[in-house]
Amino acid sequence: MILPCMAKDIVTLVKENGEKFEGIKSVISTQRIITFEIDLNIEPKDTIIHELASGTVNTYLVIDSERIPKLDGVDAHYQLLIRKIAA
């Protein structure tokens, strides 16, 4: 179970139209990104950019976006299926 306090990766969402949303707290794993920023409209073909402390920038393509409602004490969140496209 992922909790909001575990969202320590800060990412930028780049919409397909070029619009950017910065400072999004997330949890990044190999194939998924989870964020509790549910006010955003995250869709397939959007891009997620994650800059590491080392200066490396990882870029991910959103393949699928699922908004999960609040359930069993876990806040509503997005679960994004991703594919890494650049490092």
Rank of each mutant, 00 (worst) to 15 (best):
D9A: 15
E22W: 14
V14K: 15
K70L: 07
T30C: 07
A86S: 12
M6P: 00
Y60R: 05
D64K: 15
I10E: 07
K84V: 00
H77I: 06
D46K: 04
I49Y: 08
V27K: 12
I63C: 01
I28W: 05
H77N: 06
D72Y: 11
Y78G: 06
M6W: 08
A7E: 04
A87N: 02
Q31A: 08
M6N: 06
G23P: 04
D75W: 13
E16P: 00
I63N: 03
C5M: 14
P4R: 11
I28F: 07
M1S: 06
F36E: 03
E43C: 03
A7S: 07
E16R: 14
T59K: 15
P44N: 08
D39H: 11
V11I: 11
C5F: 14
K45T: 14
T12H: 03
R83Q: 08
L71H: 09
I2D: 13
I38L: 01
R67H: 08
R67Y: 04
S29L: 09
L80W: 00
L3D: 07
I82V: 07
I68M: 03
D39W: 14
M6K: 02
L13I: 01
H77Y: 05
D39A: 10
I49L: 13
D46S: 02
L52T: 03
Y60W: 05
N41V: 12
M6E: 12
K45P: 01
K84F: 03
K70Y: 09
I85D: 00
L81V: 15
V11C: 12
L71F: 12
G55M: 10
D72M: 14
L52M: 08
K45I: 12
P44K: 12
I63M: 09
E16T: 13
A76S: 15
I49A: 06
L40P: 00
G73S: 13
L13T: 03
S65F: 04
Y60N: 04
D46V: 02
K45N: 13
Y60I: 04
Q31S: 14
I24S: 10
G23H: 14
E19A: 13
G55R: 15
Q31C: 11
E19S: 11
K8D: 12
G73V: 05
G18W: 13
G23D: 05
L52R: 15
K70N: 07
V74M: 05
I33R: 07
I68E: 01
G23Y: 11
I38H: 04
V57K: 15
D75T: 15
V14S: 10
H77A: 02
D9T: 14
A76G: 13
V27E: 04
V74Q: 05
E22G: 12
I10V: 13
L61G: 01
N58L: 06
G73Y: 09
I82G: 01
L81S: 12
S54G: 02
E22I: 12
M1L: 07
M6Q: 07
E43V: 08
E51W: 09
I63Y: 00
L3Q: 13
V57F: 02
H50N: 11
K45S: 06
L71Q: 09
I28Y: 06
K25D: 14
A76Q: 09
V11F: 02
E37S: 11
G55L: 08
